[in-house]
Simulated scan of single mutants.
Amino acid sequence: MLAEAHYWGPIAQFELPDFGGGESKIQIGYLAGFGETEADGHFQLKLELEY
């Protein structure tokens, strides 16, 4: 049976200054696994651009 991975942790989100008429955001955080994925913590970096 395949178990689903579950993660939790703090994430900070920042809105970057507008450039070229678009909007941009960045998220950074650390997600720790729990249960069967306990040893699988990871850093997350997400960049979102809207035009």
Rank of each mutant, 00 (worst) to 15 (best):
M1C: 12
M1N: 13
M1Y: 11
L2P: 14
A3P: 12
E4S: 13
E4L: 12
E4C: 09
A5Y: 02
A5E: 07
H6P: 00
H6K: 13
Y7I: 10
Y7P: 07
Y7S: 10
Y7M: 12
Y7E: 09
W8L: 12
W8I: 06
G9N: 01
G9A: 06
P10C: 02
I11D: 03
I11A: 08
A12M: 10
A12R: 04
Q13W: 04
Q13A: 12
Q13T: 10
Q13F: 07
F14I: 15
F14V: 15
E15A: 04
L16T: 04
L16I: 04
P17M: 05
P17Y: 02
D18L: 01
D18G: 05
D18M: 01
D18T: 08
D18R: 02
D18I: 03
F19N: 14
F19P: 15
G21W: 00
G21R: 00
G21Q: 01
G22T: 04
G22I: 00
E23M: 03
E23G: 09
K25L: 10
K25Y: 14
K25G: 01
I26G: 06
Q27D: 07
Q27K: 02
Q27W: 03
I28W: 03
Y30W: 10
Y30R: 11
L31R: 03
L31E: 10
L31S: 09
L31K: 05
A32D: 08
A32S: 11
G33R: 10
G33K: 06
F34P: 00
G35T: 01
G35K: 00
G35N: 04
E36M: 12
E36S: 11
T37F: 15
E38K: 12
E38R: 13
A39Y: 08
A39F: 08
D40M: 09
G41I: 01
G41C: 03
G41D: 10
H42M: 02
F43K: 10
Q44Y: 02
L45A: 15
K46L: 15
K46E: 05
K46N: 07
K46M: 13
L47P: 08
E48Q: 09
E48D: 07
L49F: 12
Y51H: 08
Y51W: 06
Y51G: 13
